[in-house]
């Protein structure tokens, strides 16, 4: 593979990875928010899982081609340690941070049954953070963003995520309001009060 091919492959896989990441996150939001669907709910959950695998694969390809390409001097170290690349240090660092976050999400999901539910949940929420990181990395670094098609793509992905997040917020509020009221407060005081001891 010539250097030019690697360079273009890196850019292309990056764009595809961004779209797939967007799709993964939107599907995850729809699952968690229990969006109604003609198909059974677990089908969307499975789809989210499979799309996320493909997204991770494309991120890996994007990173691989970027490192192998000698035009941009990005060492292997920079794939996981931010701010160690000599090429566009800050923008590549964002990409590195994105990879770190995705690794955390992917590994915790692979080990889901073995780690406490709370830990899995906290790590999974990092996926939300990976998205603005990825977008900034794309806009700051990608030379393709001078093309209008790329900007339309990025805009579309942003709109999809924003729409899904707003929908989720509203649907959670609706569910909360529809939930029967009990006298148990959402977060009861945990510490029993000590009166006396001997």
């Amino acid at each position: 593979m010539s250097q030019i091919d690697l360079w273009y492959a890196s850019r292309a896989t990056g764009i595809v990875a961004l779209v797939l990441l967007t799709a993964t996150i939107v599907l995850g939001i729809l699952v968690a928010g229990r969006a109604p669907s003609a198909r059974p709910g677990f089908a969307r959950s499975e789809l989210h899982r499979r799309v996320s695998s493909v997204a991770v694969a494309f991120v890996a390809l994007h990173v691989l081609t970027a490192v192998l390409d000698s035009y941009a001097h990005i060492g292997w170290w920079a794939t996981v340690v931010p701010f160690t690349s000599s090429y566009h240090r800050a923008w590549v660092a964002l990409g590195t941070i994105g990879v770190d976050l995705l690794l955390a999400v992917a590994i915790s999901s692979a080990l889901r049954r073995r780690i406490p539910a709370r830990a899995w949940r906290a790590l999974h929420w990092l996926a939300y953070l990976s998205w603005p990181v990825a977008i900034s990395h794309t806009l700051g670094l990608g030379p393709d963003t001078r093309f209008s098609w790329a900007l339309v793509l990025v805009g579309g992905c942003s709109a999809a995520i924003a729409g899904a997040a707003l929908w989720r917020g509203a649907s959670t509020a609706r569910a909360r309001a529809a939930r029967p009221r009990t006298i148990q407060p959402p977060r009861p005081s945990l510490r029993p009060t000590k009166v006396a001891s001997s």
Binding site: Q184, P188, L190, V195, A196, S197
Partner: peptide, 28 residues
Amino acid sequence: DRTIVTLPGRYTAGEESALVASASGRPG
């Protein structure tokens, strides 16, 4: 050690496992 503790007096709070949960600092 003998300690008296007060807990929110909900109907289900006196159930055995709820009491144990309260005693360990978890929701009762």
